[in-house]
Design a protein around this nucleic acid. Structure first.
Lengths: 152, 152
DNA sequence: ATGTATGCAAATGATTTGCACACTC
DNA sequence: GAGTGTGCAAATCATTTGCATACAT
């Protein structure tokens, strides 16, 4: 099911804000636009820097509050990585994906996971646990770091 | 492969310490014993409290350092949970297991995951990524919280 | 004796919050 | 104009670290 054509992310945000008596400020607009352009695994710090670089000075506090708003509006999903930092990525109408983390260079890749249903079945099988969501990180070495390691 | 019969966890720790020129102190012994008895998903804070309660005052710093040592000795494995807190559990000679987290009551259950190999195959298939380890959390509702929720 | 461990308190890093002022509705 | 939102700085929370002292080898 694709998103209705005339329903942009900004509309979605505006709608969410309106519903909950909040306001569509400039910071929220810029933050949202920048976040969506960057596309992928931004920490609050990352986004903060991008905003500064783009000539839109905001405070870290606003970035944190803004990212939470994006999550509440359904535009972003957050995941906490092993380094303890929470990163955000756009919530697209796409299948849930999981993450490959290279322990050498720190790159993060996304993979679609066709096994999700089976994993959820496993959970169900454990005393009737009702799965609703999951987080999967697979750690290892990306191709280029393997090459570098082999060489040394 | 099971552990050799006369190789207790404490032996294993002692061996690791000896190998790396470190010392088997009282704190490390007590900490290790308490950790292994408690069995399952302890945060540094949790272990600290248990040690105090058991009449073994230690500093938080020592608990943190001690837990790291246990990991290095291969007696514990650490996982960072979604709340951002790192928890430790005994590293047994058992198949890797994953976690079911109840979002209502916070309980954590362990499940063995027979799909691990398939997941690693998926990772491989993504541009030759070399998987070495993983972290899987499935969130949802445990049986009793489902019941409570249905009732309300 | 030599050098590692511990305790304490201060430092860190990510994130949150209180408050006075600024801006949206 | 009323009531959110923002910036700033101070507060939190989990965790780490520096340093003087205590203990294992």
């Amino acid at each position: 099911m694709k998103r209705a054509p005339h329903h942009t992310p900004l509309d979605q945000l505006a709608e969410h804000l309106a519903r909950s008596g909040q306001r569509l400020t400039n910071q929220r607009k810029v933050l949202t636009a920048t976040f969506l352009e960057a596309r992928g695994h931004l920490s609050a710090e990352d986004l903060y820097r991008q905003l500064l670089a783009a000539g839109h000075p905001v405070s870290m506090a606003t970035v944190y509050r803004g990212l939470r708003t994006l999550v509440e509006a359904g535009l972003a999903v957050e995941s906490r990585f092993v380094d303890g930092v929470v990163r955000y990525e756009p919530a697209l109408d796409e299948p849930v994906h999981d993450h490959l983390v290279c322990d050498e260079c720190g790159s993060v890749f996304e993979i679609e996971n066709p096994l999700v249903d089976e994993l959820y079945d496993l959970a169900q099988a454990h005393d009737g646990f009702l799965p609703r969501d999951h987080r999967l990180l697979i750690h290892g070495l990306c191709r280029s770091c393997q090459a570098r390691t082999d060489a040394s």
